[in-house]
Design a protein around this nucleic acid. Structure first.
Length: 450
DNA sequence: TCCGCTGACACGTTTGAATCGC
DNA sequence: AGCGATTCAAACGTGTCAGCGG
């Protein structure tokens, strides 16, 4: 299916760059936080990407979803993030389709693609189509470039996935790290009024504080402002973590977090930036492409998604495959150094536990064709029109349901949610967790709200 | 008591309609 | 009448804060 087009086009040529990567990096260095509210809050920095390598006359759908970065809920304690406990069950809807979708490749390539209007919410019953997240959890956006088979019915044809390490963030209802607050105020025009030269320095106003608690908190913040890049910022291990006996932090603690202002343990960001992936060992035919944080990257891997034939002996294909070439590694989705992931989870998985990565290897013959109808009563053209996808697509319906003619059969997946954190984490062994097909099934088409 | 969440608030930017001048 | 520039107000986005509840 990766046949070259008449003009020599190959799906693997699609490239995606994060336009405002420097800004993202400056936030990432401190530990990006994103406010989520009941009514929805925009991201800042917002996701702004540029695309190249698309076929100018072919329509594409661009979408973004929020992926749980790890399996933990965090808490802010003494100027750093600590693991609190296990992650809460995943919220239902985490996908946002760019308003211009579907549009010609020429449209996507002529200017950067902004996800400015994407909003995040913690309201699980949200009806506005915002992306629902849990506070105090870490996420990262993952972008999909999809080539629908039909402009009216999103029967997914080729698609590729991209993510950017520096866009990982912690969802919060109130900013925890004052440095993030300052960065936001400094860079977000809407928060201009809170800049030091602004007029809206409420904290400096004579506003009577009736709550001693708030005084205390403010004092803590003030002291934090003075606080300068503590050398030993590490992700602390909570009692909960230790009690579970799942966290092995040795690898973290021997990392060098010195001189780094991040409220996360250094190896995290370090790995993200310095050497995000074991690129050399990776199969460049994998689907998801981890786009490194610096500007002019080539995607590490480049391949269009193809679901394997149900009859193909995937397991056999992968038998004994221990190298990254065997799987379509999804390293991209998880920071290699993901310090929050207990080593034990990675390394102590039951060896016999079959993972989708084994079950669904990339097959040249099979396409992802979940036969997903465009949301809404009518078939809008131009189609998906800019709204986050709601629950029109159930994995079971779309995937398994069409399995007959659609060259696809759904694997036995966690029933509750395809991205069950535990499962997710479980797939991380060896820094990769399944191939693109796996991901396509798991996250793209599986939301209960679809 | 602590922590996370919510809603009100003030202030800024953005957007689009109304107005004006050419 | 048509077009572009300007003005203005409403809508929207933002961080802060007090208060609430678990």
């Amino acid at each position: 299916m990766t046949q070259a087009g008449p003009d020599g086009y190959q799906p693997g040529n699609i490239r995606m760059n994060l336009e405002n990567s420097d800004l993202w990096k400056s936030f990432h260095d401190v530990g990006t936080e994103m406010i989520i509210t009941k009514h929805g809050r925009r991201m800042f920095p917002h996701c702004n990407i540029s695309l190249s390598g698309l076929q100018p006359n072919v329509k594409y759908v661009i979408m973004v979803e929020m992926i749980l970065a790890d399996n933990f809920r965090y808490k802010w304690n003494r100027e750093q993030w600590e693991v609190g406990c296990k992650a809460e069950p995943l919220p239902p809807c985490r996908t946002y389709v760019h308003p211009d979708s579907p549009a010609l490749g020429s449209h996507w390539m002529k200017q950067s693609v902004s996800f400015l209007k994407l909003k995040l919410t913690n309201h699980t019953l949200d009806q506005h189509g915002h992306i629902i997240l849990h506070s105090m959890h870490r996420y990262y956006p993952r972008f999909h470039v999809i080539q629908p088979d039909s402009p009216y019915t999103v029967r997914w044809g080729n698609f590729q996935t991209f993510s950017f390490p520096e866009t990982t963030f912690t969802a919060v209802t109130t900013y925890q790290n004052l440095k993030i607050t300052k960065l936001k105020i400094d860079h977000n025009p809407f928060a201009k009024g809170f800049r030091e030269d602004g007029t809206n320095m409420r904290s400096k106003r004579c506003r009577t504080t009736k709550s001693p608690k708030k005084d205390k908190k403010r004092a803590k913040y003030d002291s934090e402002v003075e606080y300068k890049s503590p050398p030993g910022l590490q992700r602390a291990v909570s009692d909960c973590e230790q009690a579970e006996g799942k966290l092995t932090l040795g690898a973290e603690e021997d990392g060098s977090s010195k001189g780094h202002g991040s409220a996360w343990f250094m190896p995290h960001s370090q790995s993200l930036h310095a050497e995000p992936l074991d690129v050399h060992g990776l199969d460049h035919s994998a689907e998801e492409q981890m786009v490194p944080s610096s500007m002019s990257y080539q995607p590490y891997r480049s391949v269009d998604y193809r679901l394997p034939s149900p009859s193909s002996s995937v397991a056999e294909d992968c038998k004994g495959c221990q190298s990254y070439e065997c799987h379509a590694p999804d390293v991209a989705t998880v920071p290699r150094d993901d310090t929050t992931r207990p080593v034990s989870i990675r390394e102590h998985r039951p060896p016999t536990q079959a993972t989708p990565s084994h079950d669904y290897r990339v097959s040249p013959e099979y396409r992802v064709s979940p036969s997903v109808d465009v949301p809404g009563p009518s078939k809008p053209s131009p189609g998906l029109l800019g709204y986050p996808h709601y629950g029109h697509y159930l994995t079971d319906q779309t995937m398994a349901g069409q399995g007959h003619g659609a060259q696809y059969r759904r694997p036995s997946l966690p029933h509750h949610h395809p991205l069950n954190p535990a499962e997710h984490a479980g797939h991380q062994h060896g820094y990769h967790h399944g191939n693109s097909a796996e991901w396509s099934q798991y996250s793209l088409f599986s939301y209960a709200c679809w």
